[in-house]
Design a protein around this nucleic acid. Sequence first.
DNA 1: GCGGTTTACGATGAACGTAACAATA
DNA 2: TATTGTTACGTTCATCGTAAACCGC
Lengths: 290, 290
Amino acid sequence: MTLDQITAFLWVARLGGFRKAAEQLHLTQPAISTRIAKLEEELATPLFERDGSGLTLTRQGTLLLSYARQMLFVQDEIRKHVADTAGLTGLFRIGASETIAQSWLPDFLKAFSAVYPRINIDLTVDISTDLRESLLTRRLDLALLMGPVSEFSVENIALPPFDLHWYCAADSAPVDLATTPVISFSAKTRPYRELMTLLARHVSPSVRVFTSTSLSASLQIIAAGSAVGPFPRALAGKLIAEGRIIEFDPGLSVSPLAFTASYLGEPRNFLAEDGAVIALQAAKEWQAMN
Amino acid sequence: MTLDQITAFLWVARLGGFRKAAEQLHLTQPAISTRIAKLEEELATPLFERDGSGLTLTRQGTLLLSYARQMLFVQDEIRKHVADTAGLTGLFRIGASETIAQSWLPDFLKAFSAVYPRINIDLTVDISTDLRESLLTRRLDLALLMGPVSEFSVENIALPPFDLHWYCAADSAPVDLATTPVISFSAKTRPYRELMTLLARHVSPSVRVFTSTSLSASLQIIAAGSAVGPFPRALAGKLIAEGRIIEFDPGLSVSPLAFTASYLGEPRNFLAEDGAVIALQAAKEWQAMN
DNA sequence: GCGGTTTACGATGAACGTAACAATA
DNA sequence: TATTGTTACGTTCATCGTAAACCGC
């Protein structure tokens, strides 16, 4: 019995196929076959039912599954608490939404790379919908997005929310939402839908709405006087300081943006777990300073 | 990280030396060195303090110790509950005291070998004192002896006790303990000391006492009319049936013999654990039939 | 010098990848 | 035919044992 065999077994059971497990573990499919065969041989019992298309866990396999989880959990605890993480190398893939990228993400990256000086970071800034998709397909280790990600497999750590304020061009005449276009988040996002509902109900069903996946581009459009919209102060700060945009109150309060640090719960990834904690701390500190 | 490395680490920590661990695991000492070195390399932290004579666990090593125990515990659970034990091979070393050997040991061995048909059994019949010593030096896997063995490392499962009855030769005149020698257990045993105390107090301090490590030999001596003594009925049965010895009541009640199935708790040995349970069951069934 | 650990090195064997095969839908 | 698991086989790399070096009582 080896930890590699147990790992292979767990992935085959989780993903429901030798091939998928092979891909996950960066091995060829026969290698997985061998590992499972060796394990079945040692335990003198079949672990999977190979009935044509699709594997099923046998009774013994089901039993092993919980033990396998326990064992690899302990292995992870060792890596986390016993191993010296200072020398840890590897690649850590972080996804962040633009609001975070423009606010405390630099602080977070600084803190993270201080704790894990040998880890390379791969950063993706995208809209939350895409980050969510990347997380679920294991292309990201940690996502800092508008959450929570409501999947049983995902752990969500709540981050401080961002209040939204309305902005218009500094030289703008008093704003009438019925005639001025509103620009905001990408149409695929939850805040967009909320904003649309709000505008339709309280202003007019025919309000013009622009959307953009880039919040900073949106703010430039606002500065140009082409639209107005609700944004976190963190993003607007620079343009406000330059005197190009100002806050105004259209009498419509948009609920704050709720963010989470989200990662897949299984398999355990202590870099993600620890990264989420570091992110929360960085966010809190940034908030206290702003 | 491999289970072999973890196992090696645990044994080095337990036994306090690479050489002893090597012996325990049937490996050469450099092999242990390699395993520990690899583990220390992977965890990027020293696990032992090598200061001249004697190893000490580092802080990280101490931490790892508990995780290692957990991990190997799970491994053992897998072997016990998932693996098909019917095909299990190996050698199982059982020690039993004579009383048990003469009573339900055959039933136990039959039941045990039915559950584990491929396990070879090495049986030692000896006095409890020696069995205890053998158990503690790992020369026995399971000991059925007058227990319990009061060592923190030993697990004791209580077995049904044996009542003691006094026997003398069938043609014996009424027995006077003041003049007839008493024969009983080896001088190194607990029942011997108890018997001596009893005789000194209630009969005479100068009672003649014979001792023998073989209870059946003792009974032959009784049959020959050379002595009398207290024995379990299980051992006397045959000579009673042959009409060569009879029970009598000297007015001295000797407390029953307390037996236990004892085995070392660490490392876990599920054959021993299970063997103890089977032994208890065999003993109970035998008792119900007698 | 002696008990015990580390280092060096050759040999064995476990496990991988490539490739061919088998089975199922 | 496409997909997926098994079998066969050559190769590579990890790990063992032997032997020598090292090190603190």
